[in-house]
Computed example of a mutant assay.
Amino acid sequence: MFKRLRRLRLSSNIRELIKETRLDIRDFIYPLFAISGNGIKNEIPSMPGVYQMSPDVIVEECEQLKTLGIYHILLFGIPSHKDSCGSEALSDTGIVPKTIRAIKAKHPDITITADLCFCEYTDHGHCGIIDTKLKTVDNDATLEILAQQAVVLCSSGANIIAPSTMMDGMVWMIRNQLDKAGFSHIPIMSYSTKFSSAYYGPFREVAQSSPSFGDRKSYQEDPANRKEAILESLNDEAEGADILMVKPALAYLDIVRDIRERTLLPLAVYNVSGEYAMLKAAQTAGIIDYESVMIETMLSFKRAGADIIISYHAKEVAKYLLDRK
């Protein structure tokens, strides 16, 4: 009882001194969604504060991000043309390469991580080339075009490549092709343990990437499988990944801790659209102290072992931290 009383009597200054887990805005990456056109800023109904933006608006957004201390973004593209093989993803005039060049022209100090996938670019909404007999993604055929897309993105100025398809061997293939193309200095942040999750629903609205048939369970991770989830990340590390990732974050903090204890690589979590939308809905309904719950959630990611947090809350976190300086 005496020890408990002493602990409760600690001043706020002393509590701050012995705090074990801290948030730093430099650990955050903010996702952005590029769409063709000019002057476009379309808010996503299920994700208040998140927008589809044309390249010129994204350039303006980057200026605001820097005032908040955010210098890292994760860039997605919503193409004007989709087909069965996602051909626009391989074009150096596509929406993401165009946006990367526009950002770098005005903000060379912004670190751009380019998402590497095909679900936004295919008319069927799956993450690669379809095996018509098996009615699922052809793993090896997809690896070939993933590597091509990675070279296109690096040639446009991307600083980090983030493959998210969950194809077997994707990190090895991308690393091999990037090295051959003169991009051995570009790190790979692999979506190494990406679950087939219902938490992605709002993202598919903003990225216009819902599958037209079936689902992605044949190549994304089963939420029930802990050991397999760990193995997926360790396999990507062995293939040459520079940063590992767990996605989603909130329902998988046990997996974050499991992987953290088995690797010395930097570990990212993706605080996904469904997690963001739930907090926003609760805020609108007035049933939670939104800011406190948001910060508590971010702390849980760091406490579980994440070094990097990809989050739609990043700007709000930055404002919270700035207000307390």
Rank of each mutant, 00 (worst) to 15 (best):
residue 313 H to K: 06
residue 314 A to W: 05
residue 307 D to I: 05
residue 211 P to D: 12
residue 282 A to P: 00
residue 124 H to K: 06
residue 156 S to Q: 08
residue 102 A to T: 06
residue 17 L to T: 13
residue 69 G to V: 01
residue 103 I to G: 04
residue 29 I to R: 08
residue 102 A to K: 08
residue 273 S to M: 01
residue 299 L to W: 13
residue 310 I to K: 02
residue 118 F to D: 05
residue 2 F to M: 14
residue 322 L to A: 14
residue 87 S to N: 00
residue 16 E to H: 09
residue 17 L to I: 13
residue 211 P to T: 12
residue 261 E to G: 04
residue 22 R to T: 14
residue 232 E to R: 13
residue 181 A to H: 07
residue 17 L to Q: 15
residue 18 I to T: 02
residue 318 A to C: 07
residue 19 K to E: 14
residue 69 G to F: 00
residue 44 I to M: 06
residue 62 C to D: 11
residue 76 F to W: 10
residue 82 K to G: 06
residue 269 V to R: 03
residue 128 G to A: 01
residue 14 I to G: 07
residue 26 R to H: 11
residue 180 K to F: 00
residue 297 T to L: 11
residue 6 R to W: 14
residue 321 L to Y: 02
residue 172 W to I: 13
residue 233 S to H: 03
residue 19 K to N: 11
residue 172 W to N: 15
residue 71 Y to T: 07
residue 205 E to W: 07
residue 21 T to F: 15
residue 277 A to F: 05
residue 200 Y to I: 01
residue 20 E to I: 12
residue 289 D to R: 10
residue 14 I to A: 13
residue 277 A to W: 06
residue 255 I to G: 10
residue 226 R to M: 15
residue 91 S to I: 09
residue 68 L to N: 05
residue 148 Q to S: 12
residue 198 A to H: 09
residue 213 F to Y: 12
residue 250 L to C: 13
residue 126 H to K: 07
residue 80 S to W: 04
residue 146 L to C: 07
residue 264 L to M: 12
residue 135 K to R: 13
residue 86 G to L: 00
residue 102 A to I: 10
residue 281 A to Q: 13
residue 75 L to Q: 02
residue 239 E to T: 04
residue 195 F to Q: 02
residue 27 D to C: 13
residue 272 V to H: 00
residue 298 M to H: 12
